[in-house]
Every structure is written in structure tokens, then in C-alpha cells.
Write a protein that binds this DNA or RNA. Structure first.
Lengths: 138, 138
DNA sequence: TACGTAAATGCAACAGTGTTGCAAAATAAT
DNA sequence: ATTATTTTGCAACACTGTTGCATTTACGTA
């Protein structure tokens, strides 16, 4: 098991349970983004659907993972780089969705360019989602 | 009725039906984005749910409207500036979602800044979604 | 204008997604 | 080891979106 798992859970004052350990491990292993359905499939019948939903919710609240916007209807989650503080997510990096294989990447090293809005709009967060073809699909 | 309605439908080789006229009018009237649920509520019992889904699908295919990405699970649609050609949407403008009232704006005059990705990624589209507080909610 | 064809609609049924309440089980604290 | 708190699993429900098929509507032609 990944050494960061128990550590991360404790730091966020979460009790150490099987589902949390397993789900967090999935995120740590495959660095890409995961949808609820991915987790449900990978974990087989081990956990209830509802438990997965609640675990993801908890992780988002604690700033362990963040949601990735998408034009289709699917919500994907990915690890926050260094755990964001509760309620405050500074994931100002670019997300990339491959049109071909569907994989979602967090491009941690590509920062979001500044966007200047008309006066009157107060910006709290900027999400950039790039779609196209990824490394593996060319 | 808005004069552009029949014109737009004809130009896209769509038959003129009540639902298409009514739904297109909704988009032309309130310049903001609309979710399926909004349309269902506004139209009352006039059209079947399925008809609304299919109309939205058709409009997206024809490039009359486009979908707006969002971090939550809701799909919203907005008019394409000048009808995009079929299958090709050039909506490279910034979208703004108000955290307070939930309204989604298309900021047609704010263009998407260039994003430079690591080599190996082929970019086909860049979506920028800004969230915060809008003009009315301050 | 009337007619025939092609397209769009409404209905029923279904699958997927996400939420809530509550009892049982697991975790944490003593 | 025992108790209090949290988490889980189950059941049920609401919402979202899709598909097949019969009926209705729109469109081109005569």
C-alpha cells in the first residue's frame, strides 16, 4: 500500500476505513482522473455505490481531490497536487481530455493564462479544459 | 416571434416545427445559457421531455447552439455566435458561471488566451470556464 | 388544395446517476 | 474491553438521458 495513504487521511482528520484507503490508492496509482464509474468498476462489488459517492464527496470537501469540468456530462476527479486546504482549491493548472481514449490528464506544469474580464465580473476561479489527442493516441 | 427563427431553421435544413421554434426563441430571448431543465420548466407541459432532448441534440449537431463545460454535473447550452458550420464549433470565447445566481454568460468579446502544452499533445479545442460573482449579484 | 412520403413527436420503458433515511457495522477514544 | 461516534450498506426515491415504435406533423409534388 502506498505510504501516503494513511498519512493523508489522518492529516485530514478522517477515520481510516477500507473504502477510503482503497479509493485513495486508486488515485495515487493511476495519476490520471477517475470518474465515479471507473472506481465502481475497479473495486468490483467491494463497496456500495453510495459509499463511493460519499467518499468522493468527503475527499472533495477536504481538498484531497478536485472535480474537473467537462463539456459532456461526466464528472471526473483528480488528486489535488498538494492537498488543498479545506474549501479552498488552488488547482490552477490545465486539464487535458483526450477525444480518442477519453483519458483526462492534469497538466500540473501548464499554468492557467490570465483572463481579463469586463468590469463587474469578480473572478474566483478559472478552469481551462483542453481537448484533443494525447501522447498515446497518435 | 423573433424574425431570425424560421430563417435559422431553414438555413440548417430543419423542418419548421412548434418545438423547434419555441426552443430557439427561448435562446434568442434570454441571451444567457439554458439547461434542459430550464427549457422543460419554461415550456410547461407543451412538449415531451424527449422532444426537448432531441431538439437540443439536433441544434448542437447543426451548430446552432453549443454545450458549456461545467465542474458540476449540469450541461448548459448557449447560442453559437454566428451559426457554426455543421460539426465545427468555433466558440473560442470565455464562459462565466455565477456562483451566486447560477447564471451562465457567454463572454463573446473575451477571447481564449493561447495555451502552450507539452509536446505530444495535439490541441483541438480550448474551453475556459470562469466562475465567480456576476454583475447583478454584487 | 389534396396527396404521399419523410421526418418529428409522444408515449412507454429502460439504464444510469446521484441523494436521503435508517439500521447495522466498523472505527476511534476512554 | 467498552462505549460513543462515525461510516457503511441497504432500500427507496428523484432526476437525467436514451431507445423503439406507433401516431402525428411538415414538406414537396401533382
Amino acid at each position: 500500500m502506498h505510504p501516503r495513504i494513511v498519512d493523508t487521511l489522518k492529516r485530514n482528520q478522517l477515520s481510516i476505513t477500507d473504502s477510503r484507503k482503497k479509493i485513495l490508492e486508486m488515485f495515487l496509482q493511476r495519476k490520471g482522473a477517475l470518474a465515479h464509474a471507473d472506481i465502481e468498476q475497479q473495486s468490483g462489488e467491494e463497496f456500495d455505490r453510495v459509499t463511493i459517492y460519499r467518499t468522493l464527496q468527503t475527499f472533495v470537501e477536504k481538498g484531497i481531490i478536485h472535480t474537473i469540468p467537462s463539456a459532456d456530462n461526466s464528472v471526473r476527479y483528480a488528486l489535488c497536487k498538494d492537498d488543498c486546504s479545506e474549501g479552498h482549491h488552488h488547482d490552477n493548472h490545465v486539464h487535458f481530455m483526450c477525444d480518442h481514449c477519453g483519458t483526462t490528464y492534469c497538466l500540473d506544469h501548464v499554468t492557467v493564462p490570465p483572463v481579463v474580464l469586463p468590469s463587474g465580473f469578480l473572478v474566483s476561479q478559472v478552469d481551462v479544459v483542453v481537448s484533443g489527442t494525447c501522447l498515446k493516441c497518435q
